[in-house]
């Protein structure tokens, strides 16, 4: 059986109808057994919102991520960024932040301690 992991998506009220803001909550462990399948949800979301998609990745319940899931994160970032959107990360556990830092991802995607700070950053 694949390792349990969930991704849920919430809409956030936006100041402009052209700007889409979503909170994407990750829980469980993203590893080799499930990440390809779970990544499809985010690719679908990007496809449904081709322009100005802004996503806050809530990592509060994310317990583990492997190098392949970090690869997906950078790919999503590239696709969103080139179409006028943003991705930021919020509420990361220390072990996840440590992994993001060692691969240099925190140079590319900003991390915030709270959802409110992430919302402020993404909408301003």
């Amino acid at each position: 059986m694949p390792t349990p992991a969930e991704i849920t998506i919430e809409d956030v009220e936006s100041s402009s109808p052209e700007v889409v803001v979503k909170i994407v909550k990750f829980s469980g462990q993203l590893d080799e057994s499930n990440v390809d399948d779970k990544a499809k949800l985010i690719y679908d979301l990007i496809e449904q919102n081709p322009k100005n998609l802004n996503m806050i990745f809530d990592f509060e319940e994310l317990e583990y991520m492997n190098s392949k899931s970090i690869g997906y994160l950078t790919d999503w970032y590239g696709k969103v960024y080139e179409n006028g959107g943003k991705i930021v990360i919020a509420k990361t556990r220390p072990n996840i932040l440590d992994i993001l830092q060692v691969v240099g991802l925190t140079q590319l995607i900003k991390t915030y301690p709270t959802i409110d700070e992430a919302k402020f950053a993404i909408t301003h």
């Binding site: 190098s67 970090i70 690869g71």
Partner: peptide, 11 residues
């Protein structure tokens, strides 16, 4: 930074 693979062993 935006490369999909290659961080496991080398980083």
């Amino acid at each position: 930074l935006t490369e999909l693979r290659g961080r496991g062993l080398s980083k």
